[in-house]
Design a protein around this nucleic acid. Structure first.
Lengths: 131, 131
DNA sequence: TTTGACGTTTACGTTAACGTAAACTATAGT
DNA sequence: ACTATAGTTTACGTTAACGTAAACGTCAAA
């Protein structure tokens, strides 16, 4: 377990975001870095959480959704009811992700088709030019 | 070519959105339905465009991004420069989609892992109860 | 004919996710 | 001692994507 710590600007530059963004995530309860005096000290696990938040953003998740998902990853409580609740949430999220995967694959295929048409059109123009 | 037309509430109820949302999309230039007097008349292709917008939303696209992509699907201009520009945009979007697919698959695997742990924990509880 | 269902425009309100600026602190280098 | 660099809090500003409400038109059914 590396106990390397990161300053706020370390993480900001690494993930290409602003310190303001990181403070905002803390304000919203998505991060809870340690402090040294007033300064924030980010641990390795803080860094991982930030990466998870940003991955969520790339997938179109809101910060609240990202937090919900990240919370799933953590040990959490043990009683049966909560475990069942968690399993339910996992199924919900799985359904959403499945839909997204389908949507993205469709978009990808459509882009392929458009690309092919573009290239064909350019090819035709080439031939006309050399005729 | 079915020339069936749809009212605003037809589409709103079909796609489970409000008329306000549809008017907003028109205001932003994403839709341009015909008119019969003041009333909007949506054609089949309007309906398809709306479906594309909503699919974009499910993938986390902004309305502007959705419009850009939908515009790609249309015949558009012919000159070589514009075709090259379009091919460039297609590549950009393809890269983003590829990243999203990777991200989503990662999330899916992580959900699988959490699910397995949950089920194992429940199983353990079951066994303890019957011992 | 009046009521209801459906449509319209106009315009202000709201939430999320930050941006931006002010005013301040702390510390390392010259 | 002075300055640069990096950090802090507080607070108001901004944009996207609608929600909500007001005030009105239209047309068929009771």
């Amino acid at each position: 377990m590396s106990d390397r710590v990161y300053s706020i600007s370390d993480l900001a530059s690494e993930f290409d975001i602003t310190p303001r963004t990181i403070r905002f995530y803390e304000e919203k309860g998505l991060l809870a870095p340690a402090r040294q005096g007033q300064k924030r000290l980010f641990s390795h696990t803080d860094r991982v959480r930030l990466a998870l938040i940003l991955r969520g953003k790339r997938c179109g998740l809101s910060l609240e959704e990202s937090r919900d998902i990240i919370d799933m990853y953590e040990p959490g409580q043990n009683n049966a009811e909560q475990l069942h609740s968690l399993l339910g949430k996992i199924e919900e999220r799985r359904a959403i992700i499945t839909t997204q995967l389908t949507d993205l694959n469709e978009m990808m295929q459509e882009l392929d088709a458009v690309q092919a048409r573009c290239q064909a059109a350019l090819q035709t123009m080439q031939e006309e030019a050399t005729s």
